[in-house]
Each structure stands twice: as structure tokens, then as C-alpha cells.
């Protein structure tokens, strides 16, 4: 009940995650001469035609839209590298391959805006989609192993968008398990009846007598059922 009330505060929207990704640096090849830009988010340039330089993704997209530059896709966005990553993702069912934290957003923005700059664009796009699918499937199977004994989860190399998608479910699942597993819940029911539950956000204050009993049994069942933990720890 309380987890729900917090959810709108605690979550990022997809555009917000994209906003964060737009500050990642990418390489562009300008086709104009322009002095250095001294911006709040840093200094970039000067720009010379045909000489590659690094700028934040949003600036790259803005220049590209005006026809002032072409992208130089990052190394990890080549067919060769992505094929390797995909294979490795398929081979190791419990690990995620290292990719940039914002790989989903960066690749999407580059592909949407720079058709002609990315070699084998259709191949690259479908490889990235496959990688996303494989990785997300792993996240989903990983979720099954969360149990009452999961006090911490390590998600090495999980990317920002993947975090954002799985966050609401994962946080509430862990929270529910944590609550059920806490000693307050598992202690003898008679003692629990007298305890007033901590009031969070005007939650329902009914059925105080029944809840401790049922939760007690549920938590027993669950901790018997799943006793292996998610990805190391």
C-alpha cells in the first residue's frame, strides 16, 4: 500500500532517461567552420570541416537536423561488435555484457537521426533489438529468483532504460518480501495483534486482527519455496 503511494515520486519517465542520455559524448564530423561553444554544460569545439570532434548527443542531433554534421557511430555500434555482444549475451544466462549505460537511448537517437551515417543500419538496428530482448528476458528470469532472503541485488552492467523498466516491479517485490521477512511480521500472532502498524499515508486501518495471521503463513510458504538469490550476493 505504501509502495504504491511513493511510486510517482520515485520513478523517472522514459523522456527523462533520454534527457540524461543526451549528455553523453558522441563523435561528429562537422561540415562547417564554427568557433568553440562555451555552454553551461561545458565547452565544445572549435569546429572545422571534416575534423572529428566530441559533443554531447543533444548537440550532435541538433547539428545533424540542420545538416551541419554527420555522426561517427561509436565503436560498439558496429555489426561485428554487436554480433559478439549478442552471442555472449546468449551464452551467459546470468550475466549482462558491458555496454554503455545509455546504449538503448544513444543507439535510438543515432539511428533515428542519422540514417546515412551508420553502415548496415538495418542490421545494427535488429541486432540491438535482439540484444535488448535477450537482456530483458534475463532480467525477467532473474526476478523469479528474488526471495525473502534477498536483501541486496547486484545488477552488473544493466543499462539505464532497463533499470527504469524493471524498477517499479522490482522495488515493490523486494519491499513486499522485506516486509514479510521482517521479524516483526514473523513473531507470534498474539503479540502482533496488539501492535499498531506504523501509519503510512492514511492506509486502511481495518482488519488488524486478520492480517498478521495470513501474512505469517504466506511468508512461511515463500521462504520455503525460493531459497536461491538473484545474480551473486
Amino acid at each position: 500500500m505504501a509502495g504504491q503511494s511513493d511510486s510517482h515520486l520515485l520513478s523517472f519517465s522514459a523522456p527523462e532517461v533520454e534527457f540524461l542520455a543526451e549528455d553523453e559524448l558522441v563523435e561528429i564530423i562537422p561540415n562547417l567552420r564554427m568557433d568553440a561553444l562555451n555552454m553551461i554544460c561545458g565547452d565544445f569545439g572549435p569546429f572545422f570541416p571534416q575534423i572529428a570532434t566530441k559533443v554531447p548527443l543533444w548537440l550532435a542531433v541538433a547539428l545533424k537536423k540542420r545538416g551541419k554534421c554527420s555522426f561517427r557511430p561509436p565503436e560498439w555500434m558496429s555489426v561485428e561488435r554487436l554480433t559478439q555482444v549478442l552471442e555472449a549475451e546468449r551464452e551467459s544466462p546470468r550475466e549482462f555484457q558491458p555496454l554503455p549505460f545509455h546504449y538503448v537511448e544513444i543507439s535510438k537517437l543515432l539511428i533515428d537521426n542519422g540514417h546515412e551515417d551508420i553502415p548496415d543500419i538495418y542490421m545494427v538496428r535488429s541486432l540491438i533489438e535482439d540484444i535488448r530482448d535477450v537482456r530483458f528476458h534475463k532480467v525477467e528470469t532473474g526476478l523469479e529468483t528474488i526471495s525473502g532472503r534477498t536483501h541486496a541485488v547486484k545488477l552488473k552492467n544493466l543499462s539505464a532504460m532497463e533499470v527504469n523498466i524493471v524498477r517499479p516491479f522490482m522495488v515493490r517485490a523486494l519491499q513486499a518480501f522485506y516486509k514479510l521477512d521482517s521479524p516483526e511480521m514473523i513473531q507470534q500472532p498474539e503479540a502482533t495483534v496488539n501492535r499498531r502498524p506504523r501509519v503510512i499515508d492514511r492506509g486502511p486501518r481495518v482488519s488488524l486482527q486478520i492480517r498478521p495471521f495470513s501474512l505469517y503463513y504466506v511468508s512461511m510458504l515463500l521462504s520455503d519455496y525460493c531459497h536461491f538469490n538473484f545474480i551473486s550476493i
Binding site: D6, L10, I200
Partner: peptide, 21 residues
């Protein structure tokens, strides 16, 4: 909740034992 409550029990508090990434 009522005058018999010893402490302020109707004040919404942030839930600190929530999980974060």
C-alpha cells in the same frame, strides 16, 4: 487518530526501508 494516541500517528512519513537502485 484520537486523543488517546500517544504519538502523532496520522503524519505521512517517507518510507525509508524502500529499495533504491
Amino acid at each position: 487518530q484520537s486523543i488517546s494516541s500517544e504519538e502523532d500517528d496520522m503524519v505521512p512519513e517517507p518510507q525509508l526501508d524502500t529499495f533504491v537502485f
